[in-house]
Amino acid sequence: MNEDLIPMLLTGFGETLYMVVLSTVAAVLLGLPLGVLVVISSTGHVMESPRLNRVLGVVINITRSFPFIIMIVLLLPLSRFLVGTTLGATAAAVPLSIAAAPFLARIIENSLKEVDRGKVEAALAMGATPLQIVRKVLIPEALSSLVLGLTLAVITITGFTATAGAIGAGGLGSLAIRYGYMRYREDVMFATVLILVVFVQGVQWSGDKLARRINRNQHRLG
């Protein structure tokens, strides 16, 4: 064990956490409206529009086709424009959120599609607007499944940050590659992986617990 290891790991974890939180927030801001629009523009839904639905589907599929490392390179100019640099955690959050948004949109789409058609119909019969149906029916009724989807997205984004770390984003992934892999520091390699494992477990555990809590209210018997 080296005495410089602990502060290095702390900084690395801090950067990873920062990237994950920032990218998740941005990915939700982009992905939620996208996922909602895909659902409500589908045939027979409250804002039926086959053309919009097709266009959104194609956009999501194209964005999801790019390998993440290529996405980073392609989006370097955008990172420079938005953040002023292509290096560091904030710059990496740009491709991270753009790569995660369509993924999240699909997850959200799947959750919202599960909401019983009859509930939407009942709300329509009561004079609800499409926006009210999204806010008061689709999202609350799918909440537990949305939480699980978001958990999945956070973990996927955590994985992406390691890739981003390979080309200058910082974080634990960067430590593992620069020290663990390139300089044969097995202690660094081991410690970063351990932290990531614990982190991912923690995220999944919290997500499951939260989803269960939401579900318990809705499906508690007697």
């Binding site: 509930k119 609350p140 209210n217």
Partner: peptide, 15 residues
């Protein structure tokens, strides 16, 4: 809003 409707499968909001 002035026409009430009830359904075979109730269609209540579970949340």
């Amino acid at each position: 809003k002035k026409i009430g409707m009830i359904f075979q499968h109730f269609n209540l909001l579970d949340s």
